[in-house]
Simulated scan of single mutants.
Amino acid sequence: MTEKQTLIKTLGMEVVEISEGKVVMTMPVDERTHQPLGYLHGGASVALAETAASVGTAHLIDRETQLCFGLEINANHIKAKREGTVTAVAEAVHRGRTTMVWEINIRDEEGQLICLSRCTVAVVPKRT
């Protein structure tokens, strides 16, 4: 991934592993990812989940001829977190020609489930 100024860099996300149908990413829980009361913002968790699904899809498609974009995402925020690091594990549950569906579990350092998400990513042809 590039070092451009993107949401990934702004929120401190890092890719730990990319393999066939699986992505592992981390994100700090700090002032960049907090909501006003000092807890992990649900939107930051959703951003991490969609990023992991999109990175995974990009790894599986032909990037010379195809692009991918998040199409739909849902998230259940299970547990609050004030500080530390969360880890997203995204796994492809459907790998179609025009869509891929990913399940993303975001856990803390103790393995506690923080957020459970499912994301559909569209695969579209590149326009020249």
Rank of each mutant, 00 (worst) to 15 (best):
Q66M: 09
Q112Y: 03
G12R: 02
N105I: 08
R97G: 07
Q66V: 03
E31N: 00
A88R: 00
L113T: 12
S19H: 07
G21F: 04
L48R: 00
G12H: 02
Y39F: 05
V101H: 06
L60S: 05
R127W: 12
A90P: 07
A122M: 12
G111Y: 12
E72Q: 14
G42Y: 06
Q5G: 15
M25S: 05
L113R: 03
D108Q: 08
L60N: 08
V86F: 10
I78K: 08
L60W: 00
A44K: 01
Q5Y: 11
V55M: 13
Q112L: 15
V15S: 14
M100Q: 14
T10D: 15
M27K: 01
K4Q: 09
L37S: 01
T2P: 04
L67W: 11
V29N: 03
E64L: 06
T10A: 05
H41A: 14
V101W: 06
R95M: 07
M13E: 10
E17V: 14
L48I: 00
P125W: 04
R97Y: 01
H94I: 01
E3K: 06
M13H: 06
D30H: 02
Q5N: 15
V89T: 14
S19T: 12
E17Q: 15
A44N: 05
A92W: 02
P125F: 14
I61A: 06
L7G: 03
G42W: 15
T120A: 05
H59T: 10
S45R: 00
T26A: 02
A58D: 07
L37P: 03
A58R: 02
T33M: 10
E72S: 13
T26L: 05
A53S: 06
T26K: 04
K22N: 09
E83Q: 08
E20I: 04
D30F: 07
T26D: 08
I61E: 07
D30V: 03
A49M: 15
A122G: 03
M27F: 05
I73R: 02
T6W: 01
E3T: 15
E50F: 01
E3V: 07
T26S: 11
H41F: 15
A90K: 00
K4I: 13
E83M: 13
V124L: 12
I73K: 03
T6C: 11
E50G: 08
E83F: 11
A44I: 08
V124H: 13
E64W: 00
K126C: 06
L11E: 07
E3H: 15
H77C: 11
G111Q: 08
I114W: 00
V123Q: 00
Q66R: 01
L11N: 01
N74W: 09
A122S: 14
I78Q: 08
T10L: 14
E3M: 09
T98W: 02
G38L: 04
I114A: 00
A122I: 01
A53L: 03
R63A: 12
L11A: 01
V93I: 08
R63G: 12
C68L: 02
T26R: 03
Y39G: 06
P125K: 01
R127L: 15
E31C: 02
C115T: 13
L11P: 05
V15C: 03
T51Y: 04
K79M: 15
V16R: 02
K79Q: 15
S117L: 09
A53C: 09
T2S: 13
N105V: 11
E109H: 01
R118K: 12
R82D: 14
V29Y: 02
S54Q: 02
